[in-house]
Design a protein around this nucleic acid. Structure first.
Lengths: 66, 66
DNA sequence: CATGAATATCAAAAATACTTTACATTTGGT
DNA sequence: ACCAAATGTAAAGTATTTTTGATATTCATG
């Protein structure tokens, strides 16, 4: 799973902490998802997609081996 | 999180076991996701969406309290 | 260079997702 | 009614996600 959260955040110009607040998780959770350390639940992915006004598929993408 | 996996399966006319095989999880995993017992990871949601040729948002939907 | 804001990282615990095995129930066809 | 296929459920165990708290690093700017 790769993602372009950093880009999406840049477009909306919000910090990891602000995104965390918007979707009600810790800022570490945002950080570790953004850096690809783990895959979020569908609930989190949907919330992020909603924040950015994008489809999940525009933010998260499957890779070889997923 | 609610989902319409049952409908999607009906459209493609595949069983829970077949869907499980297609996305490489156990049949029980498909069953419990379908019956709303837990929320799949984004990897699984993406794989399911791909199987059905739909966006995740067309299959999974946030509810109050998610 | 110093300061503050943002990001990265680490470790340990809690919560949730997923597997396996096994059995029960429902459903559809003959 | 009978049979087989599909679905539901349960318990126990493993794996992964998420939180919390704390510290470290990066980066822009004064």
């Amino acid at each position: 799973m790769k993602n372009n959260l950093r880009v999406q955040r840049a477009i909306k110009n919000i910090t990891q902490a602000e995104l965390a607040e918007l979707i009600q998780v810790s800022r570490q959770t945002v950080n570790t998802i953004e850096s690809g350390k783990y895959v979020p639940s569908t609930v989190l992915a949907l919330k992020m997609a909603r924040v950015f006004g994008k489809a999940i598929e525009e933010i998260f993408e499957l890779e070889e081996g997923d």
